[in-house]
Simulated scan of single mutants.
Amino acid sequence: MHAYTVEPLYVKSGQEVIAADFYLPKTSTKPAVILMAHGLAGLRQFKLVQYAKRFARAGYAVVLFDYRYWGGSTGRPRELVSLSWQLDDWRTMISHVQERQSVDGRRIILWGTALSGGYVLTLASQLNHLKAVMVQVPFVDGAASAKLYPIQQLPRALKISSQDYMGAKVGLMPKTLPVVDPKGLCFLPTADSYEGYLSILHPDFYWSGEIPARALFHLIRYRPIQDVRQINIPVLFIAAKRDSLIPIESSRETATNIAPYVQYHEWDMQHFDVYHGQYFEKAVKTQLEFLHQHIGVS
Rank of each mutant, 00 (worst) to 15 (best):
P138C: 07
L43N: 01
V137S: 09
T122S: 15
Q126S: 14
A20V: 04
L219Y: 04
R100S: 12
D268C: 03
S95M: 07
H218Q: 10
F237R: 03
L201N: 10
D89R: 00
V17N: 03
K30I: 07
G184W: 07
V97I: 15
G184E: 06
G59W: 01
L177K: 09
N257R: 15
Y149V: 08
T74E: 01
A213Q: 06
T176N: 03
I258K: 13
D164M: 06
L83H: 01
M134H: 08
I220K: 10
A143H: 12
L64E: 09
F187M: 10
R76Q: 04
A58I: 00
R242F: 12
T92G: 05
I246W: 02
G42N: 09
D192Y: 13
L185N: 09
A58C: 00
S298H: 10
R44A: 11
D89P: 01
I225V: 12
T5S: 15
P260Y: 10
I34C: 09
P234G: 04
K183H: 13
I151Q: 15
W70Y: 05
L291P: 06
L172H: 08
V284A: 03
G167D: 02
Q230V: 02
V262L: 08
A20T: 04
G277Q: 07
P25W: 00
L80T: 06
D227A: 14
A157T: 12
Q270H: 14
R221F: 03
L291F: 12
S208T: 14
S208V: 06
I238W: 02
V235D: 04
F22E: 13
A19L: 05
V179L: 09
I34N: 11
Q263D: 13
